[in-house]
Design a protein around this nucleic acid. Sequence first.
RNA 1: GUCCCCAUCGUCCAGUGGCCUAGGACAACGGCCUUUCGAGCCGUCGACACCGGUUCAAAUCCGGUUGGGGACGCCA
Length: 437
Amino acid sequence: MSEVKTHVRVRFAPSPTGYLHIGSARTALFNWLYAKNQGGKFILRIEDTDLERSKKEFLSEILDSLKWLGMKSDEEIQFQSSRKPLYDTYAKKLLDKDKAYYEETEKGKAVIFRNPKTKIAFDDIVKGKIEFDLNEFDDLVLIKSDGTPTYNFACVVDDMDMKMTHIIRGDDHISNTPKQLMLYNAFGARPPKFAHIPLILGEDRSRMSKRHGATAIREYRENGYLPEAVINFLALMGWSPKDNREKLSTEQIIKLFSLKSIKNTPAVFDIKKLNWLNSEYIKSCPPEKTTDYLTPFLIKKGVPAGNYDKKWLTSVIKLYSTRFSNIDEFIEKSEFLFKEKIDFDEQALKSYINEKTIPYLGKYTKKIEALESFGEKTLEEAARALSQELNINWADLIHPVRVAVTGKDSSPGIFEVLVLLGREKTLKRLKDIQEKS
RNA sequence: GUCCCCAUCGUCCAGUGGCCUAGGACAACGGCCUUUCGAGCCGUCGACACCGGUUCAAAUCCGGUUGGGGACGCCA
């Protein structure tokens, strides 16, 4: 005998009144993970009943972000704006049973549900039993005077119509649940199971918003975060594999995911951990792939990455792959390779460029000019030889060279850097600094 | 204000009555390695909010206090 399949159906229902927020993305993720784990369906529903605030740009951004994260709707995407007849039909049912009534307003006729004012309770998968007294709420508007359904009504009608089995959403919806439950009751329908997940908070423990930093998934994408890293990070906020593993592939997460193991405490968003995870993913990603992925975003940020050949760019990415966790960091550290004129760090200049070291630079310049091949090995040999001839400290030669060509006092291995910079630029920078001083 | 939710290191998570002198990760700090930075390796710091119960035994169960968060729209 085979097991009875549960046919799990879950949905993510954003309203296109803003970009895809990191918290919403996590809600979407938990829905998606559950569907995949259960072999069920994940369905996207666009809650665009607020005509004023709904915008096409937001819709496409939400769709793009979801696609980037790898979550796609298993069935045709539903738009509430095109399901109006359905809501009217359902409203009529309640009107006919006198469970709802019309109310005349200045703007027109609204349909209002008669709150039965009973007590109502439900078992939340992550929160446990929650009880409400409906006396705390007024009668509920079903259809607004402009003819569009309200959120709570449209939501229930759609969830019934789309045969949702589980509603996984932020716990800011807990107090909507009793209102929705009274509607299910009025229709004589069995409500889905609810799982309310705690919100993601900012550092100050208030709901995560723009002032806490980037909240749009798009921004993370454009800053060079890899989708696997973002998924991994988001999943770890409120869920864990229980065995202290941190870096998990999406497949592994799907396999291990369960609603019951979602932690019921709010999580504070920690960009440092995301950065760490992202750098882990960058380290393990083939450099060519990272290059392809990052190039457009680098260009968008003003790095003329497109002017260089891919092989060279890949070498740069490879050299920096253990040294950055996002694009801004990459740019900050590697900018000197792309620029004609570099900026010098005052402190670095002061520490390493002086009367004593400038002559060394001059001598090293000559050595390089005499070099047949401009490679890491020959460059290093030349420098070793020079420090011996002059009987100077290795550091007294190497650091000034670094400052001269990078403008900074830290960089990846200097000879690798010189090779990437190329003979011409290397010599030019070495000469410039001698003249300048 | 009313209602609801929540409470373990700075942060994320493990822990569901004895295995806990509370474990892992990020961050921070220190060491090793090293031409600098990073990476890597090793280590240090660091928490059960408080007060009462229940129990032979409580981070784990119950009650209260305090503290956070959320919801109270013809927004979603």
